[in-house]
Structures are given as C-alpha cells and as structure tokens.
C-alpha cells in the first residue's frame, strides 16, 4: 500500500465519523422504536438550513448555535413522535414508511419554497483550515478529526444513556416488548417519544458537522439517508459502535475507490456494502 493510499484510507475513516453522526439517530429509531424513518436525511437537511439562518442572524458559529438548539431539537423529536409518528407505530411497517416518506417530501418542498434550490455550505471558521501533521507523513485536517471525535463522544454518551441510566433501561424495556410495558404501566408511547427526542439531538449535531463539511441543498436528504442506512446495516442493527465502524468502512471504500477512478467513489461504497451484506447478512456486530 502506498503512502498515498494509506493517507486516503485515514481520511476516509474520518469521513466515517460524519456518516456515523448521521446514522446514530437512524440506528436508535431502528433499534428502539423499530421503525425506518425515511425522512431522517431530510430532517438533517432541515436542521442545516435552520442553522444557516440562525448563525447568519446571530453572527455565531453554527457549532455554537447547534449546542444552544439541542433542547429545542429534543422537544422537536419528542413532539414529532407524540403527534405524528406514534399514530403509525406498531401494526406494520408500511404505514410508517408512507408517513415518513410523506414527511420527507414535505420537508424537501418546504425548504425549496423557503430557500430556493441553491447549494449552500456554512463556515466553521479557523477550524476548517487547521491541520495536524501526523507521523511525519501526511496532514490530517483538524475539522475531520474533531467530527470523528464528536461522533465517538455522541456514541459513548448514547451508550451510557441506554445502558447505565434508569431511563435507558426503560427505553430498552419498551424496545424489548412494548405491549408488556403498556400492560404493567410503563407507557411505550412516552418512552418512544423520549428516544425520538434524543434522535432529534443527534440530528442537530449531525447537521452542524455536515453543513460545514459538505454542500447541501433541499433535495440532498435521501442520498444522506442511503449512506446512513448503509452504515447502520453494515454495523449491525441496534449496535451503536457498529454504526461508527460501518461509517468508517463506507468512508474508506469511497476514498480508495476514488483513488482508482473518480467515478468509482460511490460505486465502491455500495459494492463494499453489498459484499459485507453477502458475507455477514446481519452486519459486522450483530446484536445477540
């Protein structure tokens, strides 16, 4: 392996941090509420546009705005679940897919109306150009490192929330058997809403990193969803750390694919995904 390829692989692994940030929320809603939120990518784009408006208005860095917005993001996720998604949870997957698909289209068109079709990118300040010289061999951008670190912190925090707190135990109880929970007086609807509130917070954090890292426009949500979905499935449904590894595998595949031919970047991502799925249908770290 040449130094250049090694460099590309490391950069790709760091992109995995960004993918993992997109994907942890999806992983949570799949693992806990057992539903596929087709609008997950669009919610991230919606949050990105909100950050753009607010950081423009207040003259603050999008990262700072995102941190202040976290409680609001929790409330948005909580009420989205309570008022809309809860009505279709349970019976079968089809109503959930239809409703979140509708939500996806509404968000895309709403953003198109409000902001127009143009592509945007937010400015993160100095952090975007700073880099670290590593092993005397190559420069690693400070921002990708910070995003990767954020992904690790977010996943560790979710891990603690789910496995070390009483609210986490209640969320897992509802994931195990919502009907049993309701029967004994642990309201599954309320726990789902709390879980969705947490998903909302991850959406906000993902949006702040994505909107500074890459371009976004009102229609880009579905392609974000696809990558996030691949990361979740690659890592193994319900495994948060698996989602991070899944994101890294996708990022590395993209960068090494691009090394061979620029047109191979996305193809390599999907090929690796299919390959792993053939070899390990339940993902890299399946939950028991």
């Amino acid at each position: 392996m040449t130094i250049d390829m090694l460099n590309q692989a490391i950069q790709g692994a760091l992109i995995g941090g960004l993918y993992a940030l997109f994907a942890v929320g999806l992983s949570l809603s799949l693992g806990v509420i057992r539903f596929i939120n087709i609008a997950h990518g669009d919610l991230i784009v919606l949050a990105s546009f909100l950050l753009m408006s607010l950081s423009g208005l207040l003259g603050l860095s999008p990262f700072v705005v995102a941190l202040f917005m976290l409680p609001l993001a929790f409330a948005a996720g909580y009420w989205l679940q309570r008022l809309l998604l809860q009505r279709v949870v349970g019976e079968s997957v089809l109503p959930v897919i239809l409703v979140t698909f509708g939500l996806s289209i509404m968000i895309q068109n709403g953003l198109l109306q409000a902001y127009g079709p143009d592509t945007h990118k937010l400015h993160g300040g100095q952090i975007e150009v700073a880099s670290v010289h590593m092993f005397g061999l190559f420069d690693i951008g400070f921002f990708p490192l910070a995003v990767f670190f954020t992904a690790i912190v977010v996943i560790a925090a979710l891990d603690i929330l789910l496995y070390r707190t009483s609210i986490g135990a209640r969320i897992r109880a509802v994931a195990d058997d919502p009907a049993a929970a309701d029967l004994i007086g642990l309201s599954s609807g309320r726990m789902y809403a709390i879980a969705m509130g947490v998903v909302g917070m991850t959406v906000m954090l993902a949006a702040s990193c994505m909107s500074v890292w890459t371009n976004f426009d009102p229609a880009i949500g579905p392609s974000r969803l696809l990558t996030a979905f691949e990361a979740v499935v690659l890592g193994g449904l319900g495994s948060l750390w698996g989602t991070l590894v899944g994101g890294m595998v996708l990022g590395i595949a993209q960068n090494l694919g691009a090394q061979m031919d620029a047109s191979w970047q996305i193809l390599a991502q999907h090929l690796i995904f299919l390959l792993v799925l053939v070899l390990r249908p339940r993902g890299l770290f399946p939950k028991a």
């Binding site: 209640r170 897992r172 109880a173 994931a175 195990d176 058997d177 049993a180 007086g185």
Partner: peptide
C-alpha cells in the same frame, strides 16, 4: 410473565419501583 428479556433481573425489578 412478560419480562423484558434483554434486561437484567435487577433492571426488570427496578422498572417496577420507578413506575410505582
């Protein structure tokens, strides 16, 4: 019985305490 199978014995019991 309807326990929460992936939760530990202690976690199952504690849920009773928290909701009651």
């Amino acid at each position: 019985r309807r326990l929460f199978p992936s939760l530990t014995v202690a976690e199952n019991l504690r849920i009773g305490w928290e909701i009651g």
